[in-house]
Amino acid sequence: MDLGLSGKTGLVTGGSKGIGLETARLLAREGVDVVIAARRPDALREAAADIAATTGRQVRTLPFDVTKLDDIERLPDFIRRELGHIDLLVNNAGTGIYKPFLEVTDDELLHGMAINFFAQFRICQRVVPLMKEIGGGSIVNVSGATGIRVTSAPMLSSCTGPAKSAEIRFSKVLASELAPFKIRVNCVVPGYVYTPERYALWERDIVKRQLSAEEAETERLSWTSNQGMLDTHWGTPEELANLIAFALSGAAGYVNGAVLVADNAMDKS
Rank of each mutant, 00 (worst) to 15 (best):
F121Q: 08
S6K: 13
G7K: 14
G96K: 03
L230D: 13
D267S: 12
N242Y: 15
L102D: 11
T61K: 08
D77K: 14
R57G: 03
A28F: 05
E133Y: 02
S225I: 13
K68D: 05
R209A: 04
D231W: 08
G31Y: 07
T224W: 11
M229L: 14
R74C: 02
L88M: 10
L44W: 02
A153C: 03
T232Q: 12
G14A: 10
S171N: 03
E30H: 08
E167M: 13
D2N: 15
F101G: 05
V142C: 10
S152Y: 09
T195K: 07
L260A: 15
I134G: 05
V142F: 06
V255Q: 11
A258V: 07
E73Y: 07
S222G: 14
R220W: 09
T160C: 00
S165C: 09
S225N: 10
D205F: 01
V188R: 01
R57T: 14
K99S: 12
G15S: 01
R74V: 03
E239C: 15
E30N: 07
S222H: 14
E203G: 03
L174Q: 00
I168D: 05
A163K: 02
V188S: 07
G84A: 15
G31H: 09
I97F: 05
L230Q: 11
G137H: 12
L3Y: 15
I123C: 07
I139K: 12
L211T: 05
V261C: 06
D107C: 06
S152V: 08
P162E: 08
E108L: 12
E214Q: 11
W234Q: 14
E177G: 11
A166L: 08
A200K: 15
E30S: 13
V207P: 03
A119W: 00
A163G: 01
V12C: 12
N264W: 11
F121M: 14
E177P: 09
L211D: 04
E46G: 14
R198F: 05
A114R: 11
D107Q: 07
G14M: 08
I148C: 08
R126K: 14
E108K: 03
I134W: 01
V90R: 06
D70R: 12
D42P: 07
V255S: 06
V188M: 00
P100L: 10
G144T: 02
G18D: 05
L102F: 10
I183R: 04
G112V: 08
P41G: 14
A251E: 13
E133Q: 09
E22N: 14
